[in-house]
Simulated assay, not measured.
Amino acid sequence: MRTPIIAGNWKMNNTIKEALGLIEEIKASKLNKDVEAVVCVPFICLSEAKKALENTEIKLGAQNMHWEESGAFTGEISPKMLKELGVDYVIIGHSERRQYFNETDETVNKKIKSSLNHGLKPIVCVGETLDEREANIEKDVVKKQIEKAFEGIEEKDLDNIVIAYEPIWAIGTGKTASSDDANNMLAFIRETIGNKYEEKKNDIRIQYGGSVKPSNIKELMDKEEIDGALVGGASLVAKDFVDLINF
């Protein structure tokens, strides 16, 4: 039985003061204990967020990391730094990182390996653009992303990896893949994983992301293959995020 996971990606939002206020609102609400909740906050908020989340079941996530432990990489954050702060999860290969900051399948692979080596759990993002979907090559695109991302990853590591399918055309646009479309793509991702790691095919958790909100979460979560959601805008409103966790 796969534990559902709802992760909020705050992106470049919330000062430390604002972050702590949002966390307190979430903490004050009753949350479904059968769902794993994660907040992925900006780097500057990680330390204070960790303190605020003590004695709760809510996990802490970062939004990115470099694959090296240290070095001349101005402006970057290392896995060693994240681990010392008590971070649990780290988002790897988000479409915005790929689009705006030259993230590639190769750097995604390096970051996955590094995060695992430092005891961090990667949330690995994959997904196609609108042009790719309209050209009917979305499965080819996602398959390549999965195969490249998981090169050299051992089967035992899949217990600590989450995959997030995010169709790029549905992120922040208000457009959402239908629940059937999302479920079909997640089934394809699971099949692709199964081709390499047959025994872990039914164990790895796969999320859907892309304009997920309280009004559509239940329909999505009712689908067999969807194990959770990676949520953007709705995670910035305490009530909405709580409603997603309590779907």
Rank of each mutant, 00 (worst) to 15 (best):
G119K: 01
I6S: 09
K83Y: 12
A52E: 12
F43N: 10
K218C: 10
G21W: 06
E199D: 14
N216H: 10
K223W: 10
K30Y: 06
N55G: 03
I161D: 07
H94T: 02
D222E: 14
E224H: 13
V242H: 14
S235N: 13
Q207P: 01
I92A: 04
I92E: 02
A7M: 05
E199N: 15
E154T: 07
P214Q: 14
E155Y: 12
T192I: 07
D222Q: 11
K144W: 01
I16Y: 02
A62K: 09
E166S: 03
N32I: 09
V41Y: 06
V41N: 05
H94Q: 01
V90A: 00
L20K: 13
N117W: 01
M221S: 14
P79N: 05
N160W: 10
L230R: 04
I16D: 04
R205F: 04
A234C: 08
I137T: 12
P167T: 04
T3H: 05
E219Y: 06
K175M: 07
A187P: 00
P214C: 13
S115M: 05
K11D: 01
A182E: 12
T104E: 09
I91G: 03
N55F: 13
K83F: 11
K144H: 11
I226W: 02
G152T: 04
N13M: 03
I163H: 00
Y89A: 07
S235T: 09
E151L: 05
G75N: 09
A62I: 12
N13I: 00
E36L: 15
K113T: 06
K27S: 06
W10Q: 11
I146V: 14
K175N: 11
D227K: 08
K148H: 11
Y197V: 13
T3V: 13
K223G: 09
W10H: 11
K110C: 02
Y89G: 06
L130M: 05
P4Y: 06
T15Y: 06
V35T: 15
D181S: 04
T129N: 04
E224C: 12
E154C: 00
V242F: 12
S179K: 14
M185L: 07
L20V: 10
A62N: 10
K121W: 05
V35K: 11
K50M: 07
M65D: 00
A149C: 06
E138Y: 03
V126S: 00
N202F: 12
G210V: 01
F150M: 15
L220T: 10
N202S: 15
I58K: 09
V35E: 07
